[in-house]
């Protein structure tokens, strides 16, 4: 899997890495049961700290997209695709709201209205 990160970007590196994995899951390039790259190999290829990669993987686990198992590695969960698309849409919504200056409460209220 291809990764691109830019240390000059305002997003922290671990968010950039998590976003790319999430995007791959959302688009189906990574499916249920697929294994994410070993953190050490990815960290080496991108010249970042291994804990940066592990933090990205930890976030993806907290989002319910992957399982982290000792020895077996990090594996994409069942039905992670739909979930990844919703989370991606939410991050886009949040970024867009920030950009146009919408208040947090306003966005939350909006979400409750459309649900």
């Amino acid at each position: 899997m291809l990764f691109r990160v830019d240390p000059a970007d305002s997003e922290p590196l671990f968010r950039q890495i998590a976003a790319q994995v999430r995007g791959a899951i959302a688009e189906g390039r990574l499916g249920p049961g697929d294994r994410l790259p070993p953190a050490r190999e990815l960290a080496e290829a991108l010249d970042v700290n291994m804990h940066t990669v592990l933090r990205a993987y930890g976030d993806l686990r907290d989002e319910g997209l992957v399982d982290m198992r000792r020895r077996r590695g990090v594996i994409v969960r069942e039905a992670a695709g739909g979930r990844a698309r919703v989370i991606t849409a939410a991050t886009v919504l949040a970024a867009e709201a920030r950009r146009v200056g919408m208040a947090r409460d306003e966005v939350v209220a909006l979400l409750e209205e459309v649900m």
Binding site: L2, F3, R4, A8, L42, A45
Partner: peptide, 14 residues
Amino acid sequence: DLALRPGERAGWVG
């Protein structure tokens, strides 16, 4: 072709 911005890093694992 992969056009990298200055300072951008690319890595691949497979």
